[in-house]
């Protein structure tokens, strides 16, 4: 079975867990899956074994806590510690896929916003100025920032998995971080001087480029 099949098997079988076992198991599932530098095939295989184990034990009246102990985080860390690392080639493929999705979102959204602004609010122009060197510089700064933001978010979710955290406080915190990172992107874009030759691209072309980049990312994801 490949990784995708294992994941859908897991989704299907998880529904048979009791409420208590489901909560316990899913916390561990999220936490183990977020160790993103581990082989995803091996990760899903062991998650599947653990789920089967709970399902069988559940019929005999034992709980997930009886099996994995009262400190799920410690147990999950032990499992993660023994999982083999993801091979570099796969890591690279995921990275390139991430770049494609990021570019797709960026170019596509910019096209959609320009079109929307022009037709709905009569603001701006359909043919916008794009200074080649400026655009490349923006990308070179934004991509590492976006990855940093992604990693920080993942780390935060990992850290918060087994804790009961005030949901309102969590929402406010994530909202604040989201706004801050959006602000940083905006500042970079706003203060970037116009350098290099000017490419005038119509907004609909940007939407098309966005869709093409998205399809490339999707194909790459299917092939990983």
């Amino acid at each position: 079975m490949n990784t995708q099949q294992l994941i859908s098997e897991n989704n299907r079988k998880r529904e048979f867990l009791t409420k208590e076992n489901k909560e316990y198991y899913e916390d561990m599932l999220v936490y183990i899956r977020l160790s993103f530098d581990k082989s995803d095939q091996e990760t899903e295989e062991v998650l599947n074994e653990m789920l089967d184990h709970v399902l069988l034990a559940q019929e005999e009246g034992r709980t997930a806590k009886d099996i994995f102990g009262s400190n799920p985080k410690q147990y999950a860390d032990e499992v993660i510690g023994e999982l083999p690392r993801m091979v570099t080639k796969k890591q690279l493929q995921y990275f390139v896929m991430g770049i494609f999705y990021l570019l797709a979102a960026w170019v596509g959204m910019s096209g959609i916003i320009s079109t929307g602004a022009y037709y709905l609010f009569h603001v701006g122009e359909l043919y916008e100025d794009h200074y080649l060197v400026s655009q490349i510089l923006i990308l070179l700064i934004s991509i590492p920032l976006a990855f940093l933001y992604l990693i920080l978010t993942l780390q935060y979710i990992r850290w918060s998995t087994f804790k009961s955290i005030n949901r309102v406080g969590e929402f406010l915190l994530l909202w604040l971080i989201g706004m801050l990172s959006f602000g940083v992107f905006f500042l970079i874009y706003y203060f970037m001087p116009d350098i290099g030759p000017n490419l005038q691209l119509p907004a609909y072309i940007k939407i098309i480029i966005g869709v093409i980049l998205f399809i490339f990312g999707r194909i790459l994801y299917k092939r990983i």
């Binding site: 062991v46 184990h53 499992v79 999982l83 083999p84």
Partner: peptide, 25 residues
């Protein structure tokens, strides 16, 4: 996995069930 833990218990080896997975890995 599950079968293994049952077998270990049949021999009265009283280890926590979950401990076999890190070892198997």
């Amino acid at each position: 996995g599950y079968e293994l833990s049952v077998k270990l218990h049949e021999y009265d080896l009283d280890v926590s069930e979950g401990s076999i997975y890190p070892i198997l890995l």
